[in-house]
Design a protein around this nucleic acid. Structure first.
Length: 489
RNA sequence: GGCGCGGUACCCAAGUGGUAAGGGAGAGGUCUGCAAAACCUUUAUGCGUCGGUUCGAUUCCGACCCGCGCCUCCA
C-alpha cells in the first residue's frame, strides 16, 4: 500500500510518491535562530522527522533540505542591540538548535542551509522577477512582489484575493506599495542595522525569498514536498509559491504538509500566558527527552496536541513499558522452537504499524499496534509459552516501531546531564541545583553483584540495603526469573 | 467577519453505517524472601445536544452549544 498524505494544496488526502529516482525531494522550513527552540517548534520538527523516517522505512531515498533562518528583522534588531554581528548573534542559537534536535533524536536533514549564505542568489532571483515586471523597486530601494501578477495567489491558503488587484488600494500610504497585499522581497537598509551589498542594491532579504531560493537551488524548480508549521501556510508558503511559480512557470512543490500547532495546558503557548517552554526548560526540570518525543509523536500531526505535564508523565510511562518489554525479550532464556501465537502477534504488529503510518501518518494507530503485540507477547511469556524462535520477530517488530518513534534507546540521562551543564554554565541553575553525577554502569553492576551474593546468603537486610542505595542513586533494580534487570529512573 | 479543525471513559487518544483500539490513572490479582518494580485482568449499553435519513448511526445529513487554530511576527 502506498502512503496517503494530506496535501494542503488540494485539501485532500492523496497518495504520495516522489516524482523521480525513488528519491523524495523535500524542503522543510527550519528555525529562525534568534532564541532557543520551544516545544511548539519541536512538535513540527518531530513530525517532519516522523515523515522522513517513515519514507525511508518505505524504501525511498531522501533529499531533505532545511533552512536555518539566520537573518530577519528581529535578529538584526537584537544583534544591533547587543552590538554583535548577525553571525555572532545567531551562531549560539543555531548550535543549540542542532543539539536540541539531537536530544529529541530528530535526524539531520541531508542538507542544512543558512539564509545568510545565499543572499547573492536571493538578489539575483529578485532581479529576475523585476525583469519580468513581477517585482518592483520602491523609492527607498526596497523591492516588493506584485501580487496582481500572480492570479493563483491564495490557492494554498484558500484565500480569495479577487478584488485585491490594482486599484484596490488599501492603506498604501506608508509603504509606497502598489497594493497593500504586496509583500517585501528585499528591504532597504535601516540606520545602524546590518545590510548586505548586492546587485540590486544594499539591503536585506525578505523572509519568504530565502525559502524559494534555497529549495529550488538544491531540489530543482519543482520538487515533491514542502513542510512546515500550520502558521506558515499564509503568508509564508503562499508567498513562496507566488515567487517561485511566477518566475519558472512550473509547479513549485507538489505536496504541502502542515503540522498543527501544539497547545500548552489547553492554550496557545505564549510568554505572556506563562506557558512557554523551551526544550531546555523541560530537560532541566527533569523531564526525559524520550518522554517528550513520545508525547510529541503520540498525537497525529494534523491534530492539535495539548501538551501537559500529566501527558509528559504518561509518555514516560509508555516509553518505560516498551523498554521493559524490549529488555525482557532480549534477556529471556527460552526453549527452542516457535509459538504460532507469538509469530502471529509480531506479524500483525508489523503490518498494522505500516497500515497506520500509511494512513496519513497515524502514529496513534501505529503505537497501539506495538502495544497490542507487547501485551500478547507478555501473556505468552508469563505462561511460559514463548519460544526462542519468537524473539527475532518480536524484536524486529519493536525495531520497526523504533525506526520511526526512536524512543527505545535509553540515553536520557546523558542528554539531561548535558542540559544541566548548559544551564549551570549560563547561570540558569546554581551549582547546588545540579544533581550529583549519575552512578556509572560499572558501579551499578558491582553493587548488583554484591546484592546477589547477599541474596544467595539469604542476607536480605544487606540485599535490601543495597537496593535502597541504588534506588537513592536513581537506579531501579528488578528481580526477574531470568535474572536481575535494572534501569535508570 | 472570512477560512478551517475538534468535542469518544478519570486523563491522553484510535476508529467504524452493524454494535467502542491503545497508553496512563484507579481497582483486583499473579510472581517474589520482600518490593516502590514487572506482568495479567478489569473499567464507556455509550462516543457534545436536539432532530433527520436508515432494518440499524458514535460513524451520514441538518440545526444548535462548547473549545481551538489561521487570517499580523509566530513551528
Amino acid at each position: 500500500m502506498p502512503l496517503r498524505l494530506y496535501n494542503t494544496l488540494s485539501g485532500k488526502v492523496e497518495e504520495f510518491a516522489p516524482a523521480a529516482d525513488n528519491t523524495v525531494r523535500m524542503y522543510a522550513c527550519g528555525p529562525t535562530v534568534y532564541d532557543y527552540g520551544h516545544i511548539g517548534n519541536f512538535r513540527t520538527f518531530v513530525a517532519v522527522d516522523i515523515l522522513r523516517r517513515f519514507l525511508r522505512q518505505s524504501g525511498f531515498k531522501l533529499q531533505h533540505v532545511m533552512n536555518i533562518t539566520d537573518v530577519d528583522d528581529k535578529i538584526i534588531r537584537n544583534a544591533a542591540r547587543d552590538k554583535k554581528t548577525v553571525q555572532e548573534y545567531t551562531r549560539k542559537y543555531e548550535e543549540a538548535f542542532l543539539e536540541d534536535m539531537g536530544s529529541l533524536n530528530i535526524e539531520r536533514p541531508e542538507k542544512l542551509v543558512r539564509a545568510t549564505e545565499h543572499i547573492q542568489e536571493m538578489a539575483e532571483f529578485i532581479a529576475e522577477l523585476e525583469k519580468k515586471r513581477i517585482a518592483y523597486r520602491t523609492e527607498d530601494g526596497s523591492y516588493y512582489f506584485r501580487i496582481a501578477k500572480f492570479p493563483e495567489y491564495g490557492k494554498l491558503s484558500k484565500k480569495d484575493f479577487a478584488g485585491m488587484e490594482d486599484g484596490a488600494r488599501v492603506d498604501v500610504d506608508e509603504y509606497e506599495k502598489d497594493s497593500a497585499r504586496d509583500f517585501a522581497l528585499w528591504k532597504a537598509p535601516k540606520e545602524g542595522e546590518a545590510f548586505w551589498e548586492s546587485p540590486i542594491g544594499p539591503g536585506r532579504p525578505g523572509w519568504h525569498i530565502e525559502c524559494s531560493v534555497m529549495s529550488m537551488k538544491y531540489l530543482g524548480d519543482s520538487f515533491d514536498l514542502h513542510a512546515g508549521g500550520e502558521d506558515l501556510t499564509f503568508p509564508h508558503h503562499e508567498n513562496e509559491i507566488a515567487q517561485s511559480e511566477s518566475l519558472t512557470g512550473k509547479i513549485f512543490s507538489r505536496h504541502w504538509m502542515h503540522v498543527r500547532f501544539l497547545l500548552v495546558e489547553g492554550e496557545k503557548m505564549s510568554k505572556s500566558l506563562g506557558n512557554f517552554y523551551t526544550l531546555r526548560d523541560l530537560l532541566i526540570k527533569g523531564h526525559k527527552p524520550s518522554a517528550i518525543r513520545f508525547l510529541l509523536t503520540s498525537v497525529p500531526y494534523r491534530k492539535q496536541l495539548n501538551f501537559t505535564f500529566a501527558g509528559l508523565e504518561q509518555g514516560a510511562k509508555s516509553v518505560e513499558r516498551l523498554r521493559t518489554f524490549d529488555a525482557r525479550i532480549r534477556m529471556s532464556q527460552l526453549p527452542a522452537g516457535t509459538n504460532p501465537s507469538a509469530q502471529e502477534a509480531a506479524a500483525k504488529a508489523k503490518s498494522e504499524m505500516r497500515a497506520g503510518m500509511e494512513d496519513d501518518l497515524n502514529t496513534a494507530y501505529a503505537s497501539a499496534a506495538i502495544f497490542d503485540m507487547v501485551r500478547e507477547a507478555n501473556i505468552l511469556a508469563d505462561r511460559g509459552e514463548l519460544r526462542e524462535g519468537d524473539k527475532t520477530p518480536l524484536l524486529e517488530a519493536l525495531h520497526q516501531f523504533d525506526e520511526i518513534f526512536a524512543v527505545l534507546k535509553d540515553d536520557d540521562a546523558e542528554k539531561m546531564k548535558a542540559a544541566m551543564e548548559w544551564a549551570r554554565s549560563h547561570g540558569i541553575l546554581k551549582e547546588s541545583d545540579i544533581p550529583a553525577d549519575a552512578i556509572s554502569d560499572a558501579d551499578v553492576n558491582r553493587l548488583i553483584e554484591e546484592r546477589n551474593a547477599a541474596k544467595k546468603a539469604r542476607d536480605f537486610a544487606r540485599s535490601d540495603a543495597i537496593r535502597k542505595q541504588l534506588a537513592d542513586a536513581g537506579i531501579l533494580v528488578e528481580d526477574t526469573k531470568d535474572g536481575i534487570r535494572w534501569k535508570r529512573k
